[in-house]
Design a binder for these strands. Structure first.
Lengths: 357, 357
DNA sequence: CCTCAAGAATAAATCGGTTTACATTTGAAA
DNA sequence: TTTCAAATGTAAACCGATTTATTCTTGAGG
């Protein structure tokens, strides 16, 4: 099998072979109806015979935008954004676009560069999951280039772009109510101080709701800035002196660390201490005990973001312009073995806030 | 801020503004040296002033291929392929390409369609992580379209394309030797019968090495075809009657399931039973006990695949053609608390093979 | 049989670049 | 000062499509 680079057939080759003009072929290919049936069939036959496949990029050359949608995520290694990307890929293709997936690798500088790339690629629209928030460098650049787009996750609301995110606050409040109901009066929140605001939102929403519905609930907050080594140490130190009836982890890995730390200390879960995590994942149902968790509606997030973006693209075409929407998708709570009811005992000591080094 | 679609500057606009021809601008932009410094500077200035950014897709129009590399992975949700994609993205960009990431969603039919898409996009090369193996539909199509590419993971060797994969067999053999050394004489392998051959390779390599270096070692194999529910049940049933000194899980989730099942049965790990897993991940170092695991050199995998592909692309340009290479990247073994030494006790009963429903 | 508008087909312009083929400068040797 | 090859510059063709402006057919109504 010699690797002869057989010249690819172009639309002109097809036209010649079918005995019509290139314009006619183009029309047939795009399903324009003003073509005589006889000619359309000749073209179809020629396309078939030559195995012609049009070049989608050349096709878009004359348009202002191409049939491409850009997706910029902070990372590709996590299940969360992996699922977002996978879902959007299908949605985009069903709508006749192809999705261009890139990762900003948690760097705002790179995020900015990627926004620019989407611009020079003349994508029809861009879905941006910003590193930091809707006020980050990427969003700013999108605005100044007046690109059409939508913002997803780690985002609250924006004047220009629709935002789609999980209802972090609502979910945390729901957990607060549930824990109160189940008799818990001493809760410890564990979280990581990341650039993203999500974890902080979850913490403060929990505290506020707890304050409102159950003022005698003690809520300790353990927020760490550092890597997991320190995190584990901090949690351990904390548990030396405090004995909450339940831990609510505000990020996925924290849940596992907590579970692990419980075991190391010989704390039986849920008999001695309950556990709830924010962000569900497959392994939480195979651990022992299975872990109760807030499940983020990842697919719905993608669906909504895509839907909004498509609407923007369409209306852009017609020159219309509409106010931007801020969509919060509610989370559900997956109850599993790690959370149990206890008899309400108001802890003696005062709430405390522990901070990392 | 009115959304006026300011006409984008083209290379001709720059040329006019700089008082030279478009061809000259093109040369300056591509770093061709046969341009007088004075003119080059005028062009640079004009580019700067107008904020000109060339259209990389239009730029590739006249070439046979564009500065794009395609990556087709079976899924984007897993950490493994997420990391592969993230790494390749950087490598590609450093080499002046942009990476087009798509997922076949574990479907061979889709894999085929995606290969075709890469072809019509006229990518310079395609890295394919096939759903099944190097003999799948995607690879076949790549060959018949004489595309240039490389194969990665779930792949052994191929006449046309370079293959890059983890040394599953070598790693398993290494684990076998280690377990023998540590005195284990009754090992249970747990795995899933997927379309991918990887897990089966790991199992058979282990058995073979064990047979060779330690004939009195009993190796049970638990291969399940079904979903994890059944998996858990099967493992549980098995442990009712068998008492291996160590479990070697051949896939990541199996490791967690095993750990979990140990706990449910009150088996202390590692005192009562040891555990080793194939495929390391972050959480394995925060569990209690921390889990020993075979770590797959994911980045190196990506590095090698990319390096091979780039070489192929270069040699293709010069019309050269070379034999394809089959690269096996060795794994390392991360020892953690879950694996301990035991006094060698040869089990009385015979090896058994259990199969799922 | 003629007219004229709707229906179809196409040549040519266009998109934004690269490359080619040729023209013009430049500069060192004669 | 001439001469000629090397260095630069540019008009035009090209890549593979779409879109526009125009021409050529049809066919119904007069």
């Amino acid at each position: 099998m010699t690797n002869q680079p057989t010249k690819r057939a172009s639309i002109h080759d097809v036209a010649r072979s079918a005995g019509v003009s290139a314009a006619t072929v183009s029309k047939v290919l795009r399903g324009v109806t003003t073509v005589k049936t006889a000619n359309a069939e000749k073209v179809q036959a020629a396309v078939e015979a030559m195995g012609y496949k049009m070049d989608p990029l050349a096709a878009g050359l004359r348009q202002t935008t191409r049939k491409i949608i850009g997706l910029i995520v902070p990372d590709l290694e996590s299940e969360f954004f992996g699922k977002i990307a996978a879902r959007l890929e299908i949605l985009a293709e069903d709508a006749g676009y192809s999705l261009s997936i890139v990762s900003s690798h948690e760097s705002e500088a790179r995020e900015e560069r990627l926004v620019e790339r989407m611009h020079v690629w003349r994508v029809a629209g861009t879905i941006l999951a910003p590193v930091r928030s809707e006020r980050g460098a990427g969003t700013q650049l999108m605005k100044s280039l007046s690109m059409t787009g939508a913002l997803i996750d780690r985002v609250v609301s924006d004047e220009i772009y629709d935002t789609v995110a999980v209802d972090n606050a609502g979910a945390s409040a729901k957990v607060a109510r549930l824990l109160a109901e189940k008799g818990h009066r001493h809760v410890t929140l564990i979280g990581l101080n990341e650039v993203s605001r999500n974890v902080r939102t979850r913490a403060s929403a929990f505290k506020q709701e707890a304050q409102t519905i159950c003022p005698d609930m003690r809520v300790d907050v353990l927020m760490i800035d550092e890597r997991e080594d320190n995190f584990r140490t901090h949690l351990s130190n904390y548990l030396d002196t405090s004995h909450p009836s339940v831990v609510f982890s505000l990020f996925q890995k924290g849940t596992l660390i907590a579970l692990s730390e419980f075991r190391r200390r010989g704390l039986r879960c849920p008999q001695d201490i309950s556990l709830v995590g924010f962000d569900d994942t497959e392994w939480m149902q195979v651990t022992y005990p299975a872990v109760s968790a807030v499940v983020q509606p990842i697919s719905k997030l993608a669906d909504h973001a895509f839907h909004r973006l498509l609407a923007k693209i369409e209306s852009q075409k017609d020159g219309k312009t509409s106010a931007s929407i801020c969509h919060l998708e509610p989370c559900t709570l997956q109850l599993r073995e790690s959370l149990v009811e206890v008899s309400p005992v108001v802890p003696a000591n005062q709430p405390q806030v522990v901070r990392g080094a």
